[in-house]
């Protein structure tokens, strides 16, 4: 992006009204054009070696997630085992990037994943609605971090954002980031509640300016969750942020991505909208649970030349 933007960035975070001015000055998003571009890019046909590469890359980008009231320690432990060795009969299958759980189960996941490369991510800040006060949200974050989670998935205060209290949203992200210490902060925008692509763009920049390491589409608890056009807007934001500041920030798409075909469409979008350097688990993630099994089945099909039943994969 232009030099002018880099200069405006310094000014943007000075106070609440500068932030509002900056966000209002972002170029608009044309809905028809954006959706058309996303649909065109979704027609890319990924075959053979490229597909093999894409499947392995997608597996390595999965945040294997369980966020249910019914979660048990046993279920989390078996999820962790699967995260490390997704397809035990094919030891060359890459591990996933992280396991994502509620904060009270973070310690269980940390214990189960000790000594592996798989990270533990914990949701926090009164996930998924974010309806609590700052103190509770920070205590929630502290629980996650103290339990050993190296990644924290926070939700923004959508109410404050939609009311136009950008400064409050910004301050909260800054506070949570501080509470995270060395842990990575993913900021969930819950794009399904933001209503317009313009808002998605504003919320993306707001989260990036406040220090979010990754901007994330959704909690998975609200429909619509991740969509390709929304991912385009967020990928444009991290690309432009990098252009302006030199800093590399990531994107996580979550919710509703269940098939290999969907996942590959997102990888194509990453490749052609943000650029090749974002095609790494440190800068792009899939928040998903059932996606992994489809990736594994497609991986087997590529190797064997035929499909095998889901019964060969661990639960």
């Amino acid at each position: 992006m232009s030099v002018a933007l880099a200069e405006r960035l310094d000014d943007a975070t000075r106070d609440a009204s500068s932030l509002r001015r900056f966000l209002a000055g972002l170029p608009g998003v044309d809905q028809v054009g954006l959706e058309q571009r996303a649909a065109t890019l979704a027609t890319r046909s990924i075959k053979q070696d490229a597909k093999r590469w894409a499947i392995d890359t997608a597996i390595s980008m999965v945040d294997l997630t369980t966020l249910e009231g019914a979660d048990t320690r046993g279920a989390v432990r078996s999820l962790c085992a699967k995260a490390v060795r997704p397809d035990p009969q094919r030891p060359d299958t890459p591990s996933v990037a992280a396991v994502c759980v509620y904060p009270d189960l973070a310690a269980t996941a940390v214990e189960a994943l000790a000594g592996t490369d798989v990270a533990v991510a914990s949701v926090a800040t009164a996930f998924p609605s974010g309806r609590s006060n700052r103190a509770v949200k920070l205590a929630d974050t502290a629980l996650a971090v103290d339990s050993g989670a190296t990644e924290v998935d926070m939700v923004i205060d959508r109410g404050a954002f939609l009311e136009g209290r950008y400064g409050d949203v910004f301050d909260e992200i800054v506070a949570v980031k501080q509470a995270c210490g060395d842990s990575h902060l993913k900021v969930i925008l819950e794009t399904g509640e933001l209503a317009t692509y313009d808002n998605v763009r504003k919320a993306s920049w707001l989260a990036l300016l406040a220090g979010g390491d990754v901007i994330k589409t959704s909690t998975g608890k609200v429909s619509p969750a991740a969509t390709l056009p929304v991912a385009h807007v967020m990928l444009q934001a991290v690309r432009d942020f990098h252009e302006a500041t030199g800093e590399l920030r990531g994107v996580k798409v979550a919710g509703g991505i269940r098939t290999t075909k969907d996942a590959i469409r997102y990888l194509v979008a990453v490749n052609e909208v943000a650029g090749e350097r974002w095609l790494t688990p440190s800068l792009f993630r899939f928040g998903a649970s059932s996606l992994l099994n489809d990736l594994l089945l497609q991986r087997r099909a590529k190797q064997d030349g035929h499909y095998s039943g889901a019964n060969y994969l661990p639960e």
Partner: peptide, 10 residues
């Protein structure tokens, strides 16, 4: 640096 080379899809 990863490379996402699309294989020919004629």
């Amino acid at each position: 640096m990863p490379v996402f080379d699309y294989a020919p899809a004629p």
